[in-house]
Structure formats: C-alpha cells, structure tokens
C-alpha cells in the first residue's frame, strides 16, 4: 500500500507550484471558487499525452519551474509554458513523455515564454480530493498547500495500458503572441460605465500587471470611468468577468476568483480565452476585442 502511495519528493518547490486539476465547479453558491488549472488546455494535454484521464492532477508552476525526485519509477511530461527540462541534470524533452527512474530528479526550469508550465505524471498527483477536486485554491485555502521543499507527493495508479491510440505523443506549442487578445462580451453591468469607457475597453491597449495571480489578471492602462458611483449590492461573479474596481483598472477573473463581488462587471471573457491570459507575463500588451453584445 505504502509503495503504491509514495510517489515524489519535492526537491525545489519554485516560486509558486500548486497541484491543479479541473477544479470544483458547481459550488459557487457556497462561496467556493472553481479553482483548477489556469491554462486548462495545457493541463488536459499533459494528461492526454500520458494516457491519464484529463481530470488527473498535475503540477502548475509559476515562472521559475520546480524539481521533484521520483521515489518510484514513473513517466512525466511538461506542457504549458516552454522551459528547459532535465533528468538528473541531462537535457530531456519538453512536451514529450520522459521516463523517470526511481531516485532520479526531474527538473523543470524557468519558462522561456509564458508563465505556467504543467508537469504531469502517469496516474496523476494523488493527494486527497476536497469537494471532488485536488486543486489548490489560493483564495479560500481549499486543497493542498503549495509545494514546499522536501514535501512528499503521492502518485496515483498509472494508467493501463497508458496512452490510448490516437492520443498525442507530444504537446504542441504556438509561439507566444506579442500581445494578449481577449474577446469580451459586454455585460452584465456595461450600463454602469460611460460610453467613453466602453469604447476605451476595446480601443486601447492595456498591460498585464505584475500583481496578477491565480485570482485575476490585473491590467494597467487607461482607467474605465463609471457612469454611477454607487456601490453594487453583492452579486455572483462568473469566471472571465472583467470587473472594474474603483481604480478603473480592469481585472479579469481567473480560476480562483471570488464567487461574489461588489464592483461592476463591464464584460465577460469566454473561458476558452483564459488559457492565453494564464500565460501572459507581466508587461505583456493586452487588448479586448468585442465579441458582440
């Protein structure tokens, strides 16, 4: 049993590495954020390459990568932000499966582009789920702690037979765009803003702020002026909400966003566009393009 459960030991946790899966949707009415991998496509792809179910938990790094020692032989893959990968100090491929013998150290380096790499293992990270998910939710503290040096990480049972026919054997990566383009559909509170602010949102360029995190992509740029100063009674906030706090600088809500809020939402970015937001480094130019009213 012990041999089944043991899996990895964290050698270098990196700046912020968390366990992520597809999150815990369906509990927002209790104040529970959805959480889950920010670049969900990269997370799913890592699992497909390994033959895992897409819901298996992976590690999400933040800029500086991480390193783990395998306590038993396993197979890993790194997707998401491209980065150098090494096995016991020797170069290993990014985006393809890597066999990791027991005792070897898999190191994921600093991202060459983008922000978040995903490190998947055959069988997935097998920490105890909370409300059906193993994801770390940094807003409300649900799920496992972020990785710490020396901490153990259990692995699940490897998939049998492994990658199914038709699964990719390598992860594609498009070169990162020079600017982040986010489709936005106005509403539900577009009428709280001046016509000028609605034009500004889609006509001007913003920059990704270094204060961005798993809760929200914060943008710097021209402030969006409200037509009303009132406080909005708390209301439900969807994933992808473009919320405008009193500073006028929009925040695009990501997976760990609060479930209710009191600042108006000028528009909503569709979930599939948020993977790119998850990889936009601070300073990246960002534009919103209208996706219809």
């Amino acid at each position: 049993m012990w041999a089944e459960r043991q899996g990895l030991e964290v050698v270098r946790a990196g700046a912020l590495t968390t366990v992520q899966d597809l999150g815990r949707p369906g509990h927002a009415h209790l104040g529970v954020p959805r959480s889950g991998a920010l670049d969900e496509a990269a997370h799913r792809l890592a699992n497909r390459v390994l033959g895992n179910p897409e819901s298996a938990a992976t590690l999400e790094t933040t800029v500086t990568g991480c390193a783990v020692r395998a306590l038993r032989a396993t197979v890993a893959v790194v997707t998401g932000a491209p980065c150098p990968v090494t096995l016991d100090g020797r170069a290993a491929p990014w985006g393809r499966t890597v066999r990791v013998p027991a005792g070897s150290v898999l190191a994921v380096g600093t991202a060459s582009y983008g922000v978040r790499s995903y490190v998947g293992f055959a069988g997935g990270i097998a920490v105890e789920p909370v409300l059906g998910s193993r994801a770390t939710d940094l807003l409300s503290g649900l799920g496992p702690e972020p990785l710490r040096d020396g901490a153990p990480l259990p692995l699940g049972t490897p998939p049998d037979p492994g990658p199914v026919p038709g699964a990719p054997d390598a992860a594609p990566w498009q070169a990162p765009p020079r600017e982040l383009v986010l489709p936005v559909r106005y509403g539900p509170r577009a009428d709280w803003f001046t016509p000028e602010a609605l034009r500004t949102l889609t006509a001007r360029t913003f920059q990704v702020s270094s204060a961005s995190n798993r809760i929200g992509l914060r943008l710097e740029g021209p402030p969006l002026e409200r037509a009303y100063d009132g406080e909005l009674p708390s209301e439900g906030m969807p994933l992808g909400a473009v919320q405008v706090p009193p500073s006028g600088r929009p925040v695009v809500f990501l997976a760990d966003h609060p479930t209710t809020g009191g600042y108006p939402v000028i528009g909503v970015v569709p979930p599939e566009a948020l993977c790119a937001a998850a990889q936009a480094a601070p300073g990246t130019a960002a534009r919103f393009v209208p996706a219809g009213r």
Binding site: L16, L138, P245
Partner: peptide, 26 residues
C-alpha cells in the same frame, strides 16, 4: 490592492488582495 469585490467591508476584496506578486505564494 483594491480588488474587486466587496465582501464585508473593509478590505473588500481581498480576495485578490492576497495577490501580491505573482510568483509569491500567498
């Protein structure tokens, strides 16, 4: 940071508040 929302009052939104800088674990 002012973040969005307004839970109770004070620091409303703190949710994001924890933010800080990206790479720092909250």
């Amino acid at each position: 940071p002012d973040k969005g929302q307004g839970p109770p009052s004070p620091p409303p939104n703190s949710p994001s508040a924890p933010s800080g800088r990206q790479p720092q674990p909250q």
